[in-house]
């Protein structure tokens, strides 16, 4: 009962946060589109790659489970291909200069990514050291912060590399 209540409160906090962020975005956005036409097309392509990656790895996960090969318990296993899909979307969008909208500040995104990595590692590492992250050689739900941190780390690396390359090309004659 106590566990159910905690889960419910956690879910409620998550939904409330999403609604608040959405409302703030709606109220602060002007008439100008968030993404231009090239960015919108690029994001669509990135979404397509992410969708097929997630679908493929979900299928692979199900096949491996059916074959008796299990590397993660069933609460976290299906989440891993979704994380992979998110990474594919972010990296593709970053590579095509379509990750940030026209008004977004790269430094804000950088801080957000660093915070996500730090908070997940802060929770994940103690659980890993306590031995809660793995059980019988399988990743448990307590260890889910580690792949999430890895996801944000990969996105951060792609973001930083692309950001510096973009700044350098802009300084060296506007990307020519």
């Amino acid at each position: 009962m106590q566990k159910n209540l905690s889960w419910l409160l956690g879910a409620l906090c998550g939904v409330t946060l999403v609604v608040i962020v959405y409302l703030i975005k709606r109220l602060t956005s002007g008439k100008q589109a968030d993404f231009d036409e090239r960015q919108t097309a690029a994001r669509g392509e990135a979404f397509k790659y992410a969708f097929f990656t997630t679908s493929f790895f979900e299928l692979l996960y199900v096949c491996l489970e059916a074959g008796g090969i299990s590397f993660a318990d069933q609460t976290v296993g299906p989440l891993l291909p979704v994380l992979l899909g998110v990474a594919i979307f972010a990296i593709t969008a970053i590579a095509k200069d379509a990750y940030l909208s026209l008004r977004e500040n790269p430094k804000t995104t950088l801080v957000f990514l660093l915070l996500m990595i730090a908070s997940n590692l802060l929770i994940g590492i103690p659980k890993f050291l306590d031995g809660k992250a793995f059980s019988d050689g399988r990743l448990t739900f307590d260890g889910v912060q580690l792949p999430v941190a890895a996801l944000f780390l990969v996105v951060l690396a792609a973001f930083v590399i692309h950001w510096f390359r973009g700044r350098r090309s802009a300084e060296d004659g506007e990307g020519e």
Binding site: D36, E37, R38, G166, A170, E174, E176
Partner: peptide, 15 residues
Amino acid sequence: GVSRQTINAIEKGDY
């Protein structure tokens, strides 16, 4: 009302 990268891509013939 587009990004600098979009103008760059048009000039380079990439978009």
